Simulated assay, not measured.
Amino acid sequence: MSLKNKKRFMAYFPAFIKLDNQKILIVGGGHIAYEKLEHLLDFTQDISIISLDLSGDMSKCIEKNKLSYEKRAYKEGDISEFGIVIIALDDIPLQAKIFAESKKYNCLCNSVDSVDYCDFIFPSYIKKDDLTIAVSTSGASPAMAKHLRIYLQNLIPDTIGDFLKEMKNLRKTLPKGKERMKMLDEKAQKYIQNWSSK
Rank of each mutant, 00 (worst) to 15 (best):
I32A: 12
D113P: 07
D162L: 12
K4A: 15
I62S: 00
D90P: 14
F122N: 10
I126A: 07
H31Q: 14
S197C: 11
C61Q: 09
I92R: 09
M183C: 07
D42R: 02
T132W: 04
K104H: 11
S114W: 00
A145W: 05
Y117V: 03
R149V: 06
D53N: 15
N154M: 08
K128L: 07
L131F: 07
G29D: 08
L54F: 10
S48M: 03
E70P: 02
F99N: 02
K97M: 05
M167F: 06
A73E: 14
H147L: 10
D158C: 02
Y12A: 08
Y125P: 01
I156F: 07
G161E: 07
F122T: 08
D130N: 14
K36S: 05
D53G: 07
K103R: 14
D90I: 01
E81I: 06
S141L: 01
L67N: 06
I50M: 02
M167R: 10
N5K: 15
F16T: 10
Y191S: 04
K172G: 03
N110R: 05
I47P: 00
L108V: 02
G29I: 10
M183P: 04
D162K: 14
K187R: 15
K146L: 08
M1E: 10
V85L: 02
M183I: 09
R72V: 06
T159Y: 03
F122M: 04
D162Y: 13
M183R: 06
K165G: 02
Y125A: 07
L52P: 02
K165D: 09
L41V: 03
V112Q: 02
F82I: 03
E166N: 11
Q95I: 03
A143M: 11
L52Y: 12
M144C: 11
H31V: 15
A140K: 15
E35Y: 15
A145D: 08
L184S: 09
E179L: 03
A188H: 10
A134Y: 06
L148C: 13
K60R: 14
D42A: 13
T159I: 05
K176V: 12
A145V: 01
E166Q: 14
K104I: 07
G56C: 03
D185A: 15
K178P: 07
Y69Q: 04
D46R: 11
C107S: 11
I47E: 00
T159S: 15
E179F: 04
K64A: 13
A15M: 05
D78Y: 12
R171N: 12
T44H: 02
I79Y: 09
K36F: 00
I84D: 00
G30N: 10
D158H: 10
Y117F: 12
D185L: 12
D116E: 14
N110T: 06
L155C: 13
D53I: 06
P123N: 03
P123I: 06
S114C: 09
I32R: 00
S2Y: 04
S111D: 01
P123H: 01
D91M: 03
D90N: 15
